[in-house]
Amino acid sequence: MLEQLKADVMNIAKRAQREGLCKHKSGNFSARDPETGYVVITPTSKDRELLVVPDMIVMDMEANVIENQTGLRPTSESLMHLQLYKTRPDVKAVAHTHSMYATVFAVLNKPIPAVVYEIANLNCSQARIPVAKYGRPGTPALAESIIKPAKEADVMLMQGHGCVAVDETNIDEAYLKACYIEELAELYYHALVAGGGKEPYSFPPEELQKWAYPQEIKFPNAK
């Protein structure tokens, strides 16, 4: 069932391990099938390097396990994933990582401002990466904590925990956004250090909403 979607989620989970955004079995990933409404999600407590496609778990939106071929349980943070899909019906994939710099600001409960223009690609309506209030991992409280920031942006920090990114197309794009979170967090960290703790300039929301592909670029040979 949903074999291609399982493979896509598994491959991103392994990539996150290789690239250091998730370590020691931390983090989790999922993608939603628009036809069935089912969610493919990574299992709990499994070394990502040993994952195979049958290890991926299929759930419905009410947290019922529809398929777990190898007997593994879904990530304990499944409720958070499902709540994101309920809160944002446009979302088709979720990437939750514990990357270093992003988690530093999550620990500090400090939003990351728009210090570079590229944050415009993350749909941050308030020109920042917001922070979800603390909720104990695996609980309904954690799931509820992400509702407000998910309505503000496609990316968020989770207080004392890590970060989350969502995307309306696929798991590859959700993971790319998670990578951007870490890059922005690292840039912000170094800017604070270089400036002696002074907040660097950040772009206002209205500036981030003005970007458009340049009309000056033309395609005279296009058919």
Results as ranks from 00 to 15, higher is better:
H161E: 05
E206G: 12
C179F: 06
P137W: 12
E186G: 12
K210R: 09
E168P: 12
K198D: 14
G195S: 02
P137N: 09
E183K: 15
H161V: 03
V193T: 03
D172P: 06
C163L: 13
A165F: 05
M158N: 07
E183Q: 15
N170Q: 08
D172E: 11
A185P: 08
C163I: 12
H190G: 08
P205F: 11
L184S: 08
A165K: 00
G197F: 01
V155K: 05
E206M: 11
E206L: 14
H161K: 05
K177P: 08
G138T: 02
Y201S: 08
I171V: 12
E199F: 06
E152I: 00
Y175N: 07
A178R: 02
V164L: 11
E144H: 02
Q215W: 06
Y180L: 01
L184W: 00
G195N: 01
K177C: 10
I181K: 11
S202C: 09
Q209E: 00
S145L: 14
A191W: 08
C163S: 13
Y213H: 11
Q209P: 00
G197V: 09
E186F: 07
C163M: 10
G195K: 05
A150R: 00
A143E: 13
C163N: 14
L142Y: 01
H161D: 01
Y188R: 00
I171K: 07
P149L: 07
S202L: 05
Q215C: 11
T139Q: 04
E199A: 04
Y201N: 04
N170K: 03
P200D: 13
W211L: 15
L187N: 01
